[in-house]
Design a binder for these strands. Sequence first.
DNA 1: TTACTCACTTGCAAAATAAAAGTTACTAAC
DNA 2: GTTAGTAACTTTTATTTTGCAAGTGAGTAA
Lengths: 121, 121
Amino acid sequence: MKQNKTSISSKCKRSRCPVACMLDILGDKWTLLVVRDMFFGKHTFKELQQSMEKIPSNILADRLKRLQKEKIIDRTLYQERPRRYAYNLTQKGLDLKPVMQSLIAWSNKYNPDTYDMSKVK
Amino acid sequence: MKQNKTSISSKCKRSRCPVACMLDILGDKWTLLVVRDMFFGKHTFKELQQSMEKIPSNILADRLKRLQKEKIIDRTLYQERPRRYAYNLTQKGLDLKPVMQSLIAWSNKYNPDTYDMSKVK
DNA sequence: TTACTCACTTGCAAAATAAAAGTTACTAAC
DNA sequence: GTTAGTAACTTTTATTTTGCAAGTGAGTAA
């Protein structure tokens, strides 16, 4: 047990509120972009690094570790010699789809400059 | 016009992707907690400051300014002498409800330590 | 032997966040 | 009219996180 501030669960950093706990994991500018890319078929470090927002490689490495720790993605060796790894969404990650969809709908509704992503289905 | 990196809209900081643009506004640990509190009837600086995650007052002030700038909330003087202000969700803010709901559902599904928020309807 | 690629890691400056204390406008109590 | 108190912020300073550039290690290909 790490903290005991009148018992906040070990999996919840600030409170037991579902919104707060979700933000403890995904609340930053990059993590959901990595998840988005994986929904769109990007799986390797390089592919993720090349997407248009140009995530710094140290941040990408850090976020991939966090996402693995949270079991939102997993990493598998898909090729020995040379070793190559593929990141994939777990069921927990795939279940973020409704979050992605609603947030995309909101963005499209209020920011006409954003493009259509109807590929996410 | 601020930037012109082969034309990224002035409202989109990193790209025109709806996910990225949403994260440019709401992608941090606190902003959506403020929105959550307003969905639950908190309207004054003090009420927002007192919620259980204990947001630092400078961060709260900053986020309230950003949310106003983005027209997700507005600020009204509800009492002269002494001056008191109330923050309220605009329609744009209210339209974040599906995002909140899906994210709460995801959190509840995968983190059993999070509590029920069925009040958000 | 040299050049190149992928998947990271390291170092350092810049920016954002956190905690505490301070400010302004006003009311209420003594 | 002086002291105490409150709401809504702001300021200061220290700590943490981020961003950029460069570097590393395992392996391939020429």
